[in-house]
Nucleic acid binder design. Sequence first.
DNA 1: CGATCTTACGGGATTCGTAAACATA
DNA 2: TATGTTTACGAATCCCGTAAGATCG
Lengths: 305, 305
Amino acid sequence: MNLSSRQIDAFLALAVSLSFTRAAAQCHLSQPAFSALIRSLEEGLGLRLFDRSTRHVSLTSEGEDFLVAARRIRIEMDAALSSMKSTASLERGRVSIALLPSLSAGWLPNVLRQYRSAHPGIEISIADVLSEPCIELVASSKADFALAAVRVDTPELCASPFCSDGFHLVCRRDHPLAKISLTTGHGARTTSQLSALAAWPFIHMARHSSVRQYLEAAFHPQVMRTVMEVEQLATVAGMVRAGLGISVIPTLTAFHFKHPDLITRPLPLPGLTRQIYLVRRRDRGLSVAAQALHDHIVHHRPPSE
Amino acid sequence: MNLSSRQIDAFLALAVSLSFTRAAAQCHLSQPAFSALIRSLEEGLGLRLFDRSTRHVSLTSEGEDFLVAARRIRIEMDAALSSMKSTASLERGRVSIALLPSLSAGWLPNVLRQYRSAHPGIEISIADVLSEPCIELVASSKADFALAAVRVDTPELCASPFCSDGFHLVCRRDHPLAKISLTTGHGARTTSQLSALAAWPFIHMARHSSVRQYLEAAFHPQVMRTVMEVEQLATVAGMVRAGLGISVIPTLTAFHFKHPDLITRPLPLPGLTRQIYLVRRRDRGLSVAAQALHDHIVHHRPPSE
DNA sequence: CGATCTTACGGGATTCGTAAACATA
DNA sequence: TATGTTTACGAATCCCGTAAGATCG
C-alpha cells in the first residue's frame, strides 16, 4: 500500500480534533475530500481507525495503536524534511576546499568572511596546501574543489582557468634594484632585465613549489645565484629583510612583504604569469553548500594580470 | 510538501541499485514514470539527490544525507504497516470479556479453545464475575462486551438477548424428590410443584446472585426453608451431597453436579427461565479481535430453553 | 430541525506507458 | 554504436470541490 504524509497528517489532525470538519479545514481540504482521505487510509490498512456517527467521532482500538505509530512516522518525516530544507536553504551544510597558500592567506579570508556571514551554519574546511596535494584531495573526494596551479585533465578531474597571477620582485629598500625601473619588455629588453635580476643572490622557494617551477622556466637558460631554498614565504621575507638576497614572489602574496625595510615591485615579464585553475571532479556535482561557495569564489575571483 | 511511501521506496531502490532501469522494474513502474517520481521527490525537497549521466548514477552529498533519513522513515512505516496488518488479520490483538461464572466454566472453554486455535496470537482476558461487575467492566471500557443476566439500556450501554437458561433441581439420589416426575405445568399444577419443592430444606445462593433473584420471584409468595446461603456453586454441590438440603441451579451449571450421589432434573416451570444478554457500549465499535470473538461466541451460543 | 458525516458527480490535475530524442562511453 | 536517461504526448486514473443525501441528537 501507498502511505503518504498527507494521510498521516489527516489522521493525526482527526485523532486530535475528533471532528472531520475542523480537521479538514486544518488540512486545507474540503470536508468530503478529507473524509475520502481518511477512508483511503482505512482501506489501505484494512482497518477502521475511527468510530464515527454524525454526532461523535472517536478512535477505535486499532486507531489508538496507529496513533502512536503515525506520530513516530511524522517525527521521522519532519526530521528528514527540515534537515533537507535547511540544507537546501544553506542554513546547514559543509564544504571542503583545497587551495594554494598564496590564495588562502591573502585573497581568501575576506571572500570567506562574506560567505560565512551569509551562511553562518555551514561548516567550512580549508586545506591550504601546494598544488599536488590539492589535486589529491579533490581526487579522493576529501575536498569539493580546489584552486591550484596545475591544469589537470583526467577521466576523474577537470580544470578550468580561474585567475592568473603575476610576480613581484622583492628586495630591501636599500638594494640597488629598488631604484631601477622595471618595464614590460620583449626580446633583448627582457633578457637584459632577467640578467639584471639573476646577477643578485636569490632566495628560492623549494623545488616542488609552482613558484620555483615558473621562475626556473622564465629565467632559463640563465643560471641564478641561489642562496638558499625555503618552504615558507614568511621565511623568504625574513631572509630578504636580513639582506641575504632578493626574491620573486607571486603578486597574490605580495601583501606578506609590506614592510618598511622592503620594496615589492611588479615584474611584468612575459611568461612570468602563473595560471591558477579551479579543479573539480567530473562525475559528482557539487553539494549545495559547495556550489554556493564556488559561485561566490568565482564571483569574487582575484583580478587577473 | 507531500512525501509518499512510493517516493521513499523509489529513492531507496535507486540509491541501492544506482540504475533507473533496474530500480524502476523493482518498483513495478516504467522507467520514465520512475524517473518522474524521483524528479518529483527532488523538486519537493528542493535538492538534487542523484548525480546522473546516461552512463552513471550516484548519490549526491545531500542524497547521502537523505538516505539515512529515508531508511528511518521506511523502518517506522514498515513497523506501522506490519503491526496494522497483523492486527487486521487477527494475528495479534487483545480482547477482554466479562461473563457470568455459570457461562465461563461450562460453555465458554470449548468455544474459546476453537477461537484460540484459529487466532493463537490474540491475548484474551476473562472476567468471570456476577452480572453487576460485568456491566461495570463494560461501562468502564475494561471489557469489550459482557454476557450477563441484566438487560441494561442506558445512553452508554445496550443489551441484546443472547440465550435463555432454564433451571435444574438438584438433590441426593436417595432423596424423595429424586423419584417424582416434574412436568411442565400451569396454574394450580405449578403451584403444587413449587409447594413440593418449598417443603424441603433449601441451599440458597447469596442474595445478590441472579439465581437467587429468579428463585425468589418464581416461588413468591411461598416461603422457602432456607438452610444456608453460599457464594459458590461448588459449595452448593457439597452441601446437597452431604444431605443438608436440595437446591435449584441454572441448567448451564448442571454439569457441576454430575456426581454418583446426586440427581439433577430439569425444572420446566414458567417464569423459571433466566435471560442472558450480550451487553456492549453504544458509542464504540468492537476491536477487530473483539468483533471476531463476538461473532464466534454468537455463532456458538448455548441452546436456549 | 440543526449540525455533521457520507455519497454522487463533473472538472481538473496528476501519473502512467509508449515512442522518440538525447547523451555518453 | 550501444546502452541508458530524459522528453513528448495521449490516455487512464486519481483527487478535489460542490451539491445532495442520510443520520443522530
